[in-house]
């Protein structure tokens, strides 16, 4: 099935996508609370950032962004430590880019994920993290909380490094594994 550019950028929206985003957000929230190692305050080396990559692979970039953003809000809610909407929106942007690699030819559901796609994915992840946590979060922190930017910068750079490394180091092998699992009939030829 060929997808149009709009579908590639926004993802296909049907009941399955809605449930996928919900499960993704729940997974993000759980991993954010239990599956991480603290780095500095408010940031940790968490395995949660793998979720946008998976949701992006299965449903498209906008679902990935929603799963990351809503997941962060839910994580704040169930963890009970108060809200950080500036970080949630940073996650939203970061999640969008982490899920965008499907628009460049990779298709996890059909098992298409080559080395070229992995490189595109890695570049997108770095751009997304830098844009999300390096631009969106500090700007919003300043606008809403008019908080000190020095600490936000320290936290943001920690977040960029840790999240991008989780996305790349953990994400690429995982995406290869998922693509291999979904590959259908790769060794069959038409007679």
């Amino acid at each position: 099935m060929k997808k149009s550019l709009g579908q590639k950028l926004l993802g296909t929206w049907n009941t399955k996508t809605i449930v996928g985003v919900a499960v993704g957000a729940a997974l993000f929230a759980v991993l954010m609370n239990f599956g991480g190692i603290k780095v500095t305050t408010n940031t940790s080396l968490t395995s949660a950032y793998i979720v946008p990559a998976i949701v992006g692979a299965l449903f498209g970039p906008l679902p990935a962004a929603l799963a990351a953003g809503l997941g962060n809000v839910l994580a704040d809610l169930i963890g009970g430590w108060g809200f950080w909407f500036d970080w949630s929106l940073g996650n939203f942007v970061c999640g969008y880019f982490a899920g965008l690699f499907g628009a460049f030819g990779a298709d996890i559901e059909d098992g298409k994920f080559a080395v070229k796609d992995a490189i595109i994915y890695a570049v997108l992840c770095i751009v997304g993290c830098a844009l999300g946590f390096g631009v969106v979060t500090p700007v919003l922190t300043y606008a809403w909380y008019s908080s000190e930017l020095t600490i936000t910068w320290i936290q943001a750079s920690a977040a960029i490094v840790s999240d991008a490394s989780v996305l790349i180091i953990v994400g690429i092998p995982l995406l290869f594994a998922l693509a291999k699992r979904n590959a259908k009939g790769t060794n069959l030829s038409k007679e």
Binding site: N14, T15, K16, I18, V19, G20, V23, A26, L27, L31, G35, I37, L45, S47, I50, I54, L58, V166, I169, V170, P173, L174, A177, R181
Partner: peptide, 27 residues
Amino acid sequence: RLKQYVLILIPLIITSFDRVGNIANGM
């Protein structure tokens, strides 16, 4: 530890997203 979290992650992701089809069909 990070590597071990990945080993937990793979089955967790597969079981979680396997549910999606069922729930969506039900809805």
